[in-house]
Amino acid sequence: MERIQTVDAFEILLTTFNNKEIVSNFYMLKEEYSKYIQAEDLFFYVDGQNLYIYLKKHGFLKLYYFINDLNRPYSLGSPSQSQVLEIVYRGEKQFPTSHIEFWKSCGFDLHLSRDCYFLKNKELSIVVAHTDIRVEGAKSENELLYAKRLMEENLDLYTGDQLTMDEIQSFANRKWMYLAFEGSQPCGMLQADLKHGVFWLGHIVVDAKYRGKGIAKVLVEHYLSTGIKINCNQFQLWVIQDNAPAVNLYKKYGFNYLNRSTCSMLKK
């Protein structure tokens, strides 16, 4: 595994290995890979006609691939860190079977799948039910630390779920970080983000001790109400495919599958 030194050198690699009948999960734009090369976080490994790209993340490597020869098993000696790869696909009819079979044969396990859901409704109105749960913007350091702890304890470590304290602070500064409270006790968090006219539900976690009390519903209604208040009528989110309670909750408000999914695989 060697570090990629320059953008030019990387683009020569891409040009060499990106043939027409390629099996690949690479989806970075130049702006993204240039940033990673500058930060010295991007590495590569060539094996015959196959090219593997590694992005150094906190505690693991994210793997991208250009496989021209599916009969040549991935043979990089075991790096000391876990490796995770993510495959984007459009709906079940384009399920990436060939990718998954290849990686399973190389010792990777299916990790999790996510679907993207979208809601566009200019007429959307939310009637917030009376409840003992209230939602407020997270402000104090303790509240932000609480949100961080909930994410660390409940969300995936490998596929972009975790936020740094700086990111949490930044969302709180923009008033997109909310906590749910029962009495004075925090019991859940939701982070939203407004990007290019779409109000994203980024992260939502209900504290394990408080589940089954409708707190997720209260948080989601607060998120939708906030979107309506800022005159945004487009909402979007990713949800773990087999998290039926969450999927059903979103569908109840009119969210539809946006024909976009990801499947991640992991080798520890």
Binding site: T15, N18, F26, R90
Partner: peptide
């Protein structure tokens, strides 16, 4: 920011199949 890199990869894949062309990663 309306299309992200995920969208573009999907679009490339569909265009390559539909028009029998080869849009390369370096065209991203």
């Amino acid at each position: 920011g309306i299309l992200d890199s995920f969208d573009i990869v999907s679009i490339i894949s569909e265009l390559n199949d539909a028009f029998d062309i080869h849009i390369r990663v370096t065209d991203l």
